[in-house]
Design a protein around this nucleic acid. Structure first.
Lengths: 233, 233
DNA sequence: GTACGTTTAAAACGTTTGTTTGAGCTGGAG
DNA sequence: CTCCAGCTCAAACAAACGTTTTAAACGTAC
């Protein structure tokens, strides 16, 4: 009955794919994350998935459509979880059990990424890495398909952060959310600039360690005043 | 006479390329940044550069070698500038004109990126965007070629930040540097998560605006205590 | 003017790409 | 059993890829 279909509804939890299609999705996910869309061939994917080459064009329409399916399979449950976190936060506040503070908002998007990273059955860290790729590369088809759901999520987070930092202009809120998201995603994706061209002292793949270091950093950054000093509580 | 050649020496400032080679580099840079290495064909590049297809394999050995050349042309002067910033900071401190504080260290890597972004003759924002791509994609050849110079830069920044935050363990220092770099690069590269799948209130392409918003965020994040509150000055 | 190394031009090379085809297999319904 | 839809398979398709080859044009030194 919805005139504008959304990825984020109850249907996103049903297992929609046959075993062959799932094996294709799994293999494609691994390879897209590792090498990117263009650098991964359908023959690599079907070989890793141990299925026939034509199965890709049978179950999914094309290579691009396969990429969309790979992304959407993880995106929908993740976005759903984010919305639940936000709902729970606002319910707690409405019930008078505390106010919205910056850390609560940050945790509303750190927790879903953290949970995902620890759950191999949902691809583990794969989705976050894929997301960080989509962030850098330009996949116009994806933008069009997901702009509605993503826009809704951003609006919700913006509102929540705005209530946690009522003194800031909405433009400032948008910037801090942007930067905070950026830190979290790239940290979970393991895009470590320090070890880019070699070794690093930091082993940035343990989700617990990531949360431990990222959350204080982001909370402090979001709470900063314009002159770099923390805001007076 | 050097046994281990480095990209960062005086030779990196000389114009090494003929006009044809330069046109190839410029076109390749634009396209690599926009679409990535694999999604860009040599025919696209030579067409945009208005040169013959074979010129690429004549001036540069191969497509991969061209990519390295594109990157190295911008990386070397940028890294040089970073080192100058660090040298200047340490010289100021040695002369007794103040101490190393967090903002000074942050500015040591924000300023070169800012200067680059405002200078079209050095490709403007192209290099930062290219760098953010290299950060996500896996270009092993680049890693091997640049690991020495990059490692040196990281060591210098780590030392400086360690002096600005003497109470923190070296592991903590590495994490904050990692996260701070991440924010700055992706902000300058314009990888805006908020506008990922649609419109955004933030127009994140003006370098002055980026500095204005990123520096306070990063400085506050780096100065945070483990519990999310800013450290006592 | 001639001979030279350097740079450009166009065509062709052999692979690999995403996609399509058409025949063959399988398993439950009538 | 027959039948047919759902699915798999090997083979082939045209197009595009990076790279190589061959010849022609260029500027410079003798």
């Amino acid at each position: 009955m919805k005139s504008t279909p959304s990825f984020i509804d109850d249907s996103c939890l049903e297992p929609k794919y046959s075993e062959t299609a799932t094996r294709i999705l799994d293999a494609a996910e691994r390879l897209f994350v590792e090498f990117g869309l263009e650098a991964t061939s359908l023959r690599q994917i079907t070989q890793q998935a141990a299925v026939n080459l034509a199965a890709v064009n049978y179950h999914f329409r094309s290579k691009n459509a396969l990429f969309e399916a790979v992304f959407a399979r993880r995106f929908a449950p993740w976005a759903r979880e984010c919305l639940h976190e936000l709902d729970a936060l606002e319910a707690r506040v409405a019930a008078g059990q505390g106010t919205i503070d910056v850390e609560s908002v940050v945790m509303c998007y750190v927790r879903p990424a953290f949970a995902l990273s620890k759950d191999p059955s949902r691809g583990g860290v794969m989705f976050v890495r894929l997301f960080s790729r989509v962030l850098v590369e330009n996949h116009r088809q994806l933008r069009e398909k997901l702009s509605r759901d993503w826009g809704h999520l951003v609006t919700r987070y913006t509102d929540a952060l705005g209530r946690a930092l009522p003194r800031l202009l909405s433009e400032e809120i948008a910037w801090r959310l942007h930067l905070g998201f950026s830190v979290m995603f790239h940290a979970f994706a393991g895009n470590d600039i320090l070890k880019l061209f070699g070794r690093s002292a930091v082993s940035a793949r343990d989700p617990d360690l990531i949360v431990k270091h990222v959350v204080p950093f982001v909370v402090a950054g979001m709470s900063a005043t314009a002159d770099g000093k923390p805001s007076a509580a």
